[in-house]
């Protein structure tokens, strides 16, 4: 593990800051969706759950991670730079003609295992990764980061049946449960609950945690990956869309809206305070 939670808080604050600046400079991206899954990715990458070799993105030397909610993959870019898979100078070229970083990630970016942009298919891809590893006798994990509103896709549940039958205990799905679709709240628009029970009835182990608490996330992954349960696991991470920028939090309209100059300054101030809190 190595990192204490205070270290992780600092990483998360730095990542939010980088993601925000990329988004503002390019005027492109899905900021609020990226902010909600920050702690999830930080826990996986810095908590020892997603295993890799610093500076070596070669697929042979690491686990697999599929950001199935591909619009949230921007959160990975600062992490990939921090662990030496890409150059930090790429941040300035995000969504620019001469840059390698795109609004939706794809395997042309070192350390990225999947193309992003279409929902509902990343879990199947991750199940394929997990199945190949198991049949080859390789100790490799496959993580799939799903949006909660992505769970309306029927293909997710096709794979849920498949993964349970094949006892893919090296497959971990993480649901970024921010409870917001583009048009509003999932539970008001089209009910997803009871979500844990849905996965359990498909033969998965399911746990719900605070998706912004490193302690809770750490505990969930620790338990999931240490237990030889012969079942796939879903970690339902309760999150806040737009986390870290108060006026964007839990407001579905920020999925598609771009902030004005005043709002950008306000957001910067809040994210700096966040960084200071993390450092303090």
């Amino acid at each position: 593990m190595g990192s204490s939670y205070a270290d992780l808080e600092q990483k998360a604050a730095w990542i939010r800051h980088q993601v925000f600046e990329m988004y503002v400079a390019a005027k492109r991206g899905h900021l609020v969706s990226s902010l909600s899954l920050t702690e999830i990715l930080v826990t996986l990458y810095y908590g020892g759950f997603y295993r890799y070799e610093r500076g070596n993105p070669s697929p042979d030397r690491r686990d697999r991670l599929v950001v199935s909610k591909g619009h949230g993959a921007t959160t990975l870019y600062p992490i990939l730079a921090d662990i030496g898979f890409i150059e930090a100078s790429e941040f300035d070229r995000y969504a620019q003609a001469d840059g390698i970083l795109r609004m939706h990630a794809d395997p042309s970016i070192p350390g990225i295992d999947s193309v992003g942009g279409s929902l509902g298919q990343g879990l199947g891809l991750a199940a394929g990764f997990a199945l190949a590893a198991k049949r080859d006798g390789i100790d490799r994990r496959a993580f799939a980061i799903l949006g909660d509103a992505e769970l309306y896709e029927g293909s997710i549940w096709e794979t849920a049946i498949f993964a349970a039958h094949n006892e893919l205990d090296n497959l971990v799905a993480v649901v970024d449960r921010n409870r917001l679709a583009i048009l509003g709240e999932t539970e008001t628009l089209l009910r997803l609950e009871p979500l844990e029970e849905k996965f359990r009835s498909f033969g998965w182990a399911a746990v719900t945690v605070d998706g912004h608490s490193f302690e809770a996330l750490h505990g969930a992954f620790e338990e999931t990956l240490s237990r030889p349960a012969r079942v796939p696991t879903v970690v339902i991470a309760d999150t806040i869309k737009g986390r870290g920028i108060s006026f964007m939090e839990n407001d579905h309209e920020w999925h598609t809206r771009f902030p004005n100059a005043d709002q950008i300054e306000r957001a910067r101030t809040e994210l700096s305070a966040y960084t200071l809190r993390a450092e303090g």
């Binding site: 295992d113 509902g120 298919q121 990343g122 879990l123 199947g124 891809l125 991750a126 199940a127 394929g128 990764f129 997990a130 199945l131 190949a132 590893a133 080859d136 496959a142 029927g154 293909s155 096709e158 794979t159 049946i161 498949f162």
Partner: peptide, 13 residues
């Protein structure tokens, strides 16, 4: 759909 998605994961492995 799952067939193709899983196939992709296997092929990418």
């Amino acid at each position: 759909q799952n067939t193709i998605d899983v196939a992709a994961g296997l092929a990418a492995s």
